[in-house]
Design a protein around this nucleic acid. Structure first.
Lengths: 157, 157
DNA sequence: TCTTGCCTTTGAGTGCGCTCGAAGGTTTAG
DNA sequence: CTAAACCTTCGAGCGCACTCAAAGGCAAGA
């Protein structure tokens, strides 16, 4: 190992978790919910309103991110609160928060007011991750702009 | 389907691809390469300098993102150009560009100057994706800040 | 009554990007 | 001569977040 590589190697520490999100941002941005939705929605209606597929809504529920009431037939019925949580979960996913973390957060919420400090800490940690990601993307954008201004330049630095 | 859901449903169009990146941003930011690296590096040295594991470097090569020379024993030898491409690939990964797209881009680069317009178009499309992602993250940040200022508030809107 | 369509659960499959292990060749120190 | 520490290829495995298929229940219209 050379001195140069050692110097660079010192930077190897904090591991940034992956950040996958197969959702349509436009859709979910709309999810500061409009007022004139019916008070109760079927899963198909929620899917259409939010852009999250019914499959994924069920998956989120299985994963413990969501709780939804049922009608006599056993069908899911989304009231305003359930819909709000769908919006929240979706927004957190778009921000890059992993399912597992969202799960912990909503567990804390459901556990009552005593967990507020913990919730706050969790959200602040996630906020820091989002800030790092924003900085990262801005750096990348600069590189991309450099590539573009040098008009399809090589893969060099 | 209600009128309200229909109104929202109209927004369902452009699908945003996933964006996964298990890399340490700090490391790769350092990859506007320092000058005092040796002219030729082994895979382990490149791994240490960049924070990309040797396994991943080989994977990138298999995926056609990289071409690396060999010594008499068949060992990989990274010269400055190869290292620059590692830096480029890593930066594009961090910006959320999928392997497949990077592959197409470097193919175009290797195909010579005639492909410059195509390269440009590809990079501009990616730039647009990064801008969308930046906007998305800023919106998410606002939601997170709201959650934090209301101190661990519910999952509601 | 039958068909159509939406709903249910369960469990398996998919795609992406790594990540790892096995089996073996090379180089250097003892 | 041998052991340790590199390196090689190949193919399989993993984690995440969906995504889908099968098998069946319910509800409304022809």
């Amino acid at each position: 190992m050379t001195a140069a590589t050692e110097r660079l190697g010192e930077l190897a520490d904090a591991y940034e978790p992956p950040e996958p999100l197969p959702l349509d941002p436009e859709l979910v941005r709309a999810l500061d919910l409009p007022e004139d939705l019916p008070a109760e929605l079927s899963i198909a209606e929620v899917a259409e309103a939010t852009g999250v597929t019914a499959h994924t809504l069920r998956y989120y529920e299985r994963a413990g991110l969501l709780e939804v009431g049922r009608n006599a037939a056993g069908y899911r019925v989304y009231d305003r609160e359930a819909l709000a949580r769908v919006a929240f979960v979706t927004r957190m996913r778009l921000s890059g928060m992993p399912i597992e973390l969202i799960h912990r957060y909503v567990e804390l919420v459901d556990a009552g007011d005593g967990t507020k400090p913990e919730r706050l800490a969790l959200m602040q940690a996630h906020r820091a991750a989002v800030l790092r990601r924003l900085a990262e993307l801005r750096t990348s954008l600069a590189v991309i702009d450099y590539k573009i201004t040098t008009y399809g330049g090589d893969c060099g630095p």
